[in-house]
Design a protein around this nucleic acid. Structure first.
Lengths: 189, 189
DNA sequence: AGCATTTCTTCACAAATGTGAATGAAAACT
DNA sequence: AGTTTTCATTCACATTTGTGAAGAAATGCT
């Protein structure tokens, strides 16, 4: 039920010719569990709408995978910083489940914006959402201990616990898997 | 040397009529040390360019002031989320030094964008910068211990240590002042 | 179903950070 | 200059989180 068409129609009041043109600029792609949408070091020149599946963003720090974000149906995936500044990606984006995405080269997206100027707000919407999320995460990490961070995540994004391995959630919360496990055990008791 | 005029001329290639009109929409204001630009709960409907001075963003969590950002000459200050979504501010912005700002109501800024369409990119530039900064902070908090966070800040923003009380830096780093003091003592030895 | 692999849990101990109190240093205020 | 207030440091002890190892549970594979 997360289709690019629906998303576009709902968010951008195109006329019907525009929407057809825009839709044709996207390519569909299926990913298997474990497939990468993007690898560290690559120049990310594309952006994709997630129609189905779950993704994890992570970077390597001292050979450890450190999770910095998740994405699900209805989210857009890209390395925003690299995309806009032409820098190599600092993150990996990998499918946690079989996934289906609609992707587009950023150049073509720019071209689409000529055809459908409504699309120009997409970038702002995206970065605003990314910003709010990053700020919330930083605030949570700086101001709350591990137990409260876990409780907040449980309250705010419960669906995450059904779809993402616990050690990835631990990493996102700035914890080792054993510590998250201990916190859960303590709360159950 | 941080004047709004210079900033505008450097960043937006206006014609000279536009720039005059835009400049007249801003009001100058001097703040004393300790003055608030914005208080938690207020509806933030303005944005300001810092010509001189230093500011701290903080919120109260269990009566404690928790620092989430700093701003200096050449930065813009506002509560972005509240400004764009019409929500009450979740943060306080207070001058740490005598300061001089050039501020504008967001409504007038929107009006200026009619006169000078170049200004429309300002919002995107701002939120992109905020996003990168929030992401870096979150990454640092999640992936590095207190000592490394301190070292990184010392390397990346050394000027901060001359202008901001240490207990604010500790808070920004997600620490108690005593812990930061201990880390510094350990490194000197 | 059975086997292999991955993920989660538990434990004992180590290391990092918080807490509250005391002291000294620095800065702000007449 | 002297006084007051704020800020930084130090210490002993408490709490939280990390670490490495072991085993249990869940999942994937044939």
């Amino acid at each position: 039920m997360y289709e690019l068409d629906h998303y576009l129609e709902k968010n951008f009041p195109f006329n019907s010719t525009s929407i057809t043109v825009v839709k044709e600029c996207f390519s569909s792609k299926d990913l298997k569990k474990g497939d990468y949408f993007l690898r560290e070091g690559e120049y990310c020149k594309k952006i994709a709408y997630v129609e189905q599946g779950a993704f994890v963003y992570f970077e390597y720090i001292d050979v450890e995978e450190k999770v910095c974000d998740f994405a699900f149906e209805g989210d857009w995936i890209t390395h925003y910083k690299g995309l806009t500044q032409g820098l190599p990606s600092t993150v990996n984006i990998r499918a946690l489940e079989p996934a289906k995405i609609q992707w587009i080269e950023i150049e073509n997206m720019t071209a689409c914006e000529q055809e459908a100027p409504e699309l120009r707000t997409l970038r702002l919407q995206l970065v605003e959402q990314y910003f709010m999320q990053a700020m919330d995460r930083a605030s949570s990490l700086a101001n709350f201990n591990a137990e409260k961070r876990y409780e907040k995540m449980l309250a705010e994004r419960p669906e995450l616990f059904n779809r993402v391995p616990q050690y990835h959630i631990a990493s996102y919360l700035g914890l080792k898997p054993q510590s998250l496990s201990r916190i859960r055990a303590k709360k159950i008791k």
